[in-house]
Each structure stands twice: as structure tokens, then as C-alpha cells.
Design a protein around this nucleic acid. Structure first.
Lengths: 241, 241
DNA sequence: GTCTCTCCTCTTGTATACTAGTAACCAAGA
DNA sequence: TCTTGGTTACTAGTATACAAGAGGAGAGAC
């Protein structure tokens, strides 16, 4: 699994790494829509390599829940499973709320400067309406906070889980005002971390992450064809053995 | 990563699945010690298959942090990285403490019966000194509690993270009295979940998981040659960009 | 004795050929 | 018209062959 080791596919040959990054990005940004057929041969031709590295990439993306490999039939872009999205949100929220608490306890003067730099980056990205750059700066800030908490490597794990959330985020194509609201939430988080207000930071982080989650539920209601599984909240399931 | 989709290697051909299970178990139980060389050819002969499925298994285990693939050189059983162990513990503790809180809120009459069944299984395993059976029942109970909380699929994620902890657990070869202590902790958790005492259940779970952690530090002190990286606790790292 | 260069062997990375299973299509019959 | 049978095309799974790099052993020079 992704924790522990540096980056997932980055250890392999250059072909694998490149193809992995490209395909993952195309899936997350919904350039490849859920359900799209993905058989190995066309992509090996497209990237100018043999089936082997493409196959390795497919396998890895399937492990991440982004592809679905059906033996002897084909490989398809996985539908967005609402259950998986809910679970991913739960994991991310639980871990990041805990780490931001620790971050607030740990943050020193240097962290203050660094965090303000991240906010500046985001402010500029909004000014230039550069969504990708904003998302990058967003990710970097979350990564940084987890590092300040003392557990930098778990960002890798969150990254994997977050893939499901990002897919929805890109699909919902949000703009303008929404970015400002996210940014204000970031400001509040940073403020409380710098102040050392652990409880307040946790609250701010939870509200932040949950507001992103609202986007998801809105999309699930508007475009149910992209999803698989019911929308209902989890029910206590005490009947399993 | 591993969340979202059912089991990791279970989707592949029978060869891959079988080899994956076998090798993973051998690594976790320290039958294959950290540092052992693992080149592809001998194992393909041993399992009577070609390099391809073995290679796929190696890559998957490398993703889990159990193998380390060095291109053009060889593949080795990964050393136990203390940092990774600490991080794994953090993730598991954070997630399971949260889920047990929810479980305590959700648990109904059926859960009560099921949980008591799990305890009975464990009691018998201890009576028979059957370590493997105890570990299995242990895992099943944790899985069940996460299911009651409403997020059954995140057990997959914890499972992956837990691999690092399990390696240490098997290496330290604990016995007798230790099992009883674990069992008592389980009893306390179950008791509080059934009572609906969310806070109490969380506390019990945290103490339970952290006690496993003590084992780790003991082993790290006794057999440092199996480990890689320093033993010190995490330090706030606010210097990263 | 020691250092260096070369070559050989072993490793993983990649390409290609072969196997086997699925599904869709089409035709023949009721 | 519907059903059923077989044929065909396509898929992923596996085996094997080849390429490229790392590392160690051994020979030679100093």
C-alpha cells in the first residue's frame, strides 16, 4: 500500500512512471470518464511501448480503485462508487483533523512564514483564475501541515484515498466564488494553527473538508449516471459475521 | 491504493493470488527475514510459473513496503523502517479510535452477541495456545467493529498499514501472559461498546493499540539489526518546503 | 601489495508470442 | 419473430526472448 514507500510508481522504469502519471491525471480530471474502455494494446501503441509497462500501470491504477480489470474481457475506468467516496472522506477527515491538532501544537515561527507563503500562492492562483495551480498549492499546504504534525509520510496514504474525492471535484468544475470560500477556510486554519489553537484548528479543518464533501453530494444528485451505489448514509451493519 | 476495492491481489489470475498470499505471509511471519534476496527467477521456478506473475507479485509487495526493488540489482525483503512503523501505528490508532467511537453509538443487540462470540473464539485460541487462530480472531473482531461503525471498507486500508506492525509482532514471538493481557483489553473494549460508552470505548481502544506499540520498542531495542532508521520520536519538522 | 581496468554474470526492464476465456454477432431452425 | 447454436473477434493472463545496467572477480600494471 502506499504508506511507507515514497511515491507509488516512481520507482519503476521511466516508461511506467510517465504512463502512470499521465493516465492517472486523465482519470482524475475526468478526461477519461467512468466506464470508458481501456484495453492495453491501444494505449501501448499510443505511448510507443509494449503491453508490459502499460499492463503494470493498469494494475496499479486498478489497485487505487481507478480502473476495473475484468479478466478476459477488458479494463474500464471505474465508476465512482459513492460508498468509496464516503469512506475516503471519512479517512481523510479523521487523519487530517488529528494531524492539524498536532500541527497547531508544534508549529513554530518558521511554520508561520511557510504557511503564509502557501496562502500567498493560493491568492495569486485565484487572481489568475488558475484552477490547477490553486489545487497544487492546496495540496502542498495540506502536505505541509501533516509534516508539521510529524507524520509526513501519511500524506502518501491520504493522496491515494483522495483520488476518489478529486475525481468528483474535477467533475463538478467549480469556479470563482467557490475558490474564495475554500481560501477563507484555509486562512482560518492557518490562523488557528499559528495561534496554537489546536481545538479551533481541528474544527476549522473539519468544516473545510466537509464543505468539499458537499460538492460531492451535489454532483451525485445532479449526475447520478456517473455513480454506482446508493446515496444513502451508512447504516450500522451489525449483521455481518 | 487499497481502499475502495475489495482485496488487493484477489482479482488477478489464480497464480498471482496464490503467490501473493504465500509470499506476503512468509514476510509478515518473518519466515523471510529483512534483507533477504528475492530475485524473480528462483521463485518462478519454485511456484512453477514464469517470471511474469512473480514479477507482478513482487511489485505489489514493494508497493506495500514489504519488498524493495532495486533496478538492475535485485529485490530484497525490506528492512523494518521504524518511521514507517510509527506512522502505521498513528494511522491505525487514529482511524480505529474514531470508528470504535461510532461503533459504540451504533451497536445493537445483534452486535452484542457477535462480539461476545469473537471473545469466545479468542478464549479458546488462548486455551489451545494457538497463536495464529488468536491473531485471526483478533483481526476479525477489529474488522467487525469497523463494520458496525459503518465504514467496513476501510479495514482494507488498515490491513495494508498494519503489515508493518504485524511484522514486528511476529518477530517478537510473544506468548502466554501477553495474550491474556490483549484479551482483557478486548473484553474491556467490547464491554464499553455494548454499553454504548463511546468515550470509554475510545480510551480502551487507544490503550489496546498502544500496548502493541510497546512490543515494537522492545524489539527495536533488542534487535536493532532488523531495523532501519532512528528510534527517536518524531520531531516537529517545520523546515520543509 | 595495491590499484585499476576489463570482462563476465546476474539482476530487473521491456518486447513479443502464445493461451484461454468472454461476449457479441450471425445464421439456421422452430 | 424468437430462440438457439456456433463462429469469430477481442480481451487479459502467461511464457519466453532480448536489452541494459550494476557489481564483483580476476588479470595486469605499477
Amino acid at each position: 500500500m502506499a504508506l511507507i514507500n515514497e511515491n507509488a510508481a516512481r520507482r519503476s522504469g521511466p516508461a511506467v512512471r510517465e504512463i502512470y502519471d499521465a493516465l492517472r491525471h486523465r482519470i482524475l480530471t475526468a478526461d477519461l470518464m467512468p466506464g470508458t474502455g481501456m484495453s492495453e494494446v491501444p494505449y501501448s501503441e499510443q505511448f510507443g511501448v509494449s503491453r508490459t509497462p502499460v499492463r503494470e500501470v493498469f494494475r496499479r491504477l486498478a489497485d487505487e480503485g481507478l480502473l476495473r480489470i475484468v479478466p478476459q474481457v477488458g479494463t474500464f475506468v471505474a465508476p465512482i462508487q459513492l460508498r468509496a467516496v464516503y469512506d475516503s472522506q471519512f479517512v481523510r477527515e479523521t487523519l487530517e483533523c488529528r494531524t492539524v491538532t498536532l500541527a497547531a501544537a508544534n508549529a513554530g515561527g518558521r511554520a508561520r512564514d511557510d504557511l503564509e507563503d502557501f496562502l500567498t500562492l493560493q491568492r495569486r492562483a485565484i487572481r489568475d483564475s488558475d484552477l490547477q495551480r490553486f489545487f497544487d498549492a492546496d495540496d502542498k499546504m495540506h502536505t505541509y501541515l501533516i509534516g508539521v504534525a510529524g507524520y509526513p509520510s501519511i500524506w502518501e496514504l491520504i493522496q491515494g484515498v483522495k483520488a476518489q474525492l478529486d475525481r468528483v471535484r474535477y467533475l463538478s468544475l467549480e469556479s470563482g466564488d467557490w475558490l474564495n470560500r475554500i481560501f477563507e477556510q484555509h486562512e482560518l486554519i492557518v490562523k488557528r494553527v499559528i495561534e496554537g489553537d489546536a481545538t479551533g484548528a481541528e474544527t476549522a479543518m473539519r468544516e473545510h473538508l466537509q464543505s468539499v464533501f458537499l460538492t460531492i453530494e451535489r454532483l451525485a444528485n445532479n449526475k447520478p449516471e456517473l455513480f454506482e451505489g446508493s446515496l444513502g448514509p451508512h447504516v450500522s451493519n451489525a449483521s455481518k459475521s
